[in-house]
């Protein structure tokens, strides 16, 4: 699967799509693949604040729980309710199945994130480590 070059990425395997000051957050194909069948998503509520680099929720596969780290700081404006009943969408379409949308408080944080090329390089190193 290719990593959209319009997205930005974290070393913790989240992706961020930016439209003006709204950032949409999900996890990457690499992340869903290493987790396996996803059965549960624990996301914050609309109005909650999230902080760049800090845990904002978790995803659970059958066998493990993984924390989610926010790529950017801001206030949650939307939570993907589809994932309550169909968390497996993260497995089948990881780069479309967003988890939260955030009104970014510090849009310049986006510049600190990885480009798709850098992220692909990063995961190839992680795989071969």
């Amino acid at each position: 699967m290719t990593y959209p070059n319009s997205y930005r990425y974290t070393r913790e395997h989240e992706w961020l799509q930016v439209e003006e000051t709204i950032g949409t957050v999900g996890i990457t194909d690499y992340a869903q693949n290493s987790l396996g069948d996803i059965v549960f998503v624990d996301a914050p509520k609309v109005g909650d604040t999230v902080e760049a680099g800090k845990v904002f929720g978790s995803v659970e596969s059958v066998k493990a729980v993984s924390d989610l780290y926010s790529p950017i700081s801001g206030t949650v404006t939307a939570v993907n309710q589809d994932l309550v009943t169909a968390p497996e969408k993260i497995n089948t379409e990881p780069h479309q199945a967003w988890i939260i949308k955030v009104q970014m408080s510090t849009p310049s944080q986006v510049d600190t994130l990885l480009s798709s090329a850098d992220y692909e390089k990063f995961i190839s190193e992680e795989t071969n480590a």
Binding site: E12, S34, L35, S61, S66, D67, L68
Partner: peptide
């Protein structure tokens, strides 16, 4: 996302 496990 935190890595679920680090293989030895």
């Amino acid at each position: 996302m935190s890595s679920p496990s680090v293989p030895a």
